[in-house]
Design a binder for these strands. Structure first.
Lengths: 233, 233
DNA sequence: CGCGTTGTTGAGTGGATTCAATGGATGTGG
DNA sequence: CCACATCCATTGAATCCACTCAACAACGCG
């Protein structure tokens, strides 16, 4: 079960530089010093909030990976976004709306719960927060646009390769990738089997490597060559 | 060629109630009275701005329909969003970014060009504008999320039907739908032929009607019954 | 009228899904 | 430590949905 492990100290938080409070240079700022959001922990697969429920808190991810998903009545589901350390989410309440998606922990995670009314007051008094949130919304929107291009205009292999490039980078480094085949499919609009087939094929060809939940792009050029033949990525 | 037809009078603009200035109740507000964005007209197919170019203006659509599109190097393209009267677009500059998509007029259109620096100043002085823009960003993001579900989790017929329901409503009214088959395809991630086949089929079955660029859902229940059999919409 | 553009329809192909069986890893209890 | 259960990934075979290619029809326009 998710539970609260304490009250956060935003002013001295380790991930403050990633958060919407990053720009508040004055660490002695009264507002931020007196703001103590609950820090909550979620095990993998536990739900942070549900679509349609009243959005009276926003959240910042401190640790772990969280997925935002939408579901169809028939059970098919789509991962809308993957969240990493420092990401702000669940802010529909700012527009007076209920949550538009469900947030579920992919790995064990730590989350700061930011009550909407407190955050709103804080934002009103500190324009830097307002600014930081605006930057994030615009960035989120841009990424959503990019994702629509992926889903609408690319084929299976192209989507999967794009995703790996984005997640792992192109420099051959190993990156933790805590997603199951099912989840990669739900993110990219593909089935388990399709994801598995492409990954297996690329592994056989030595283009990527995988080990204990981590992934490496061994030969980015060759992968791009193989998948994105005519400039399709 | 697109051209400027004059300076807008925001305070007395006919679509002010739809714009980000709607909440500024004080019509005598000095700021808004002295703000005179250029009003530009674009013929169908003309470009408002291009992806990658410097985003030094945002825009409000006064009249017509504009599409935001992204293109792949190989020519495939995806319509990210359709804009209607009152919509705000092209605000990437607020995050210091270049435009992330290309904006093209679908029909003859009128657009207000809002220089970024002026709009920023206006926003800083008038929290209502800030608030209105925030609401829009969040709404835009929610719609983008909905679209990701469409593109990632639904089949061709389901996507097309959802789109028609959203555009035409469910009450059997006629709505102008100034999109070609190609554009509907680009919006929904389908080909011309697929769109045409479904629409022809539904017309033959008397579920929808089309005439001179307008569309009507004649039998919403039957359409939903046919397409969304197991709760897939 | 001829022409270009857009929409329709058919036939064939192919890509991704579905269905099904197997394999591998992990964990639990005896 | 092994037997067993469970979960996830892999692989094959068959199916189906949407795409591609192609021909033709409809429409608007000069």
């Amino acid at each position: 079960m998710p539970h609260i492990i304490g009250q956060g100290q935003c002013a001295t938080c380790q991930i403050r530089h990633l958060s919407i409070f990053a720009e508040l240079e004055d660490v002695l700022n009264e507002d931020i010093r007196s703001f103590h959001p609950s820090v909550m922990v979620f095990d993998a697969a536990e739900t942070v909030y549900r679509q349609q429920s009243v959005a009276n808190s926003a959240f910042t991810l401190r640790k772990g990976v969280v997925k935002l998903i939408k579901m169809l009545p028939n059970g098919r589901s789509q991962i809308i976004r993957l969240l990493r350390k420092g990401d702000l989410f669940g802010f529909d309440g700012f527009a007076g709306e209920a949550y538009n998606h469900t947030a579920i922990a992919v790995t064990n995670s730590e989350v700061c719960r930011l009550p909407l009314n407190e955050l709103m007051a804080l934002k009103k008094k500190n324009p830097e927060i307002e600014q930081a949130m605006m930057m994030r919304w615009i960035r989120d929107l841009r990424e959503a646009e990019d994702m629509m291009l992926e889903l609408g205009a690319k084929k299976a292999g192209e989507r999967l390769a794009s995703f790996l490039f984005k997640w792992c980078g192109e420099n051959g480094s190993w990156q933790e990738l805590p997603l199951s085949r099912l989840e990669m499919g739900e993110l990219l609009g593909l089935t388990i089997e399709t994801v598995s087939r492409f990954l297996s094929d690329w592994k056989r060809k030595g283009l990527i490597n995988e080990s204990r939940g981590s992934m490496q792009i061994a030969d980015a050029d060759a992968l791009r060559e193989l998948v994105c033949m005519n400039g399709s990525c």
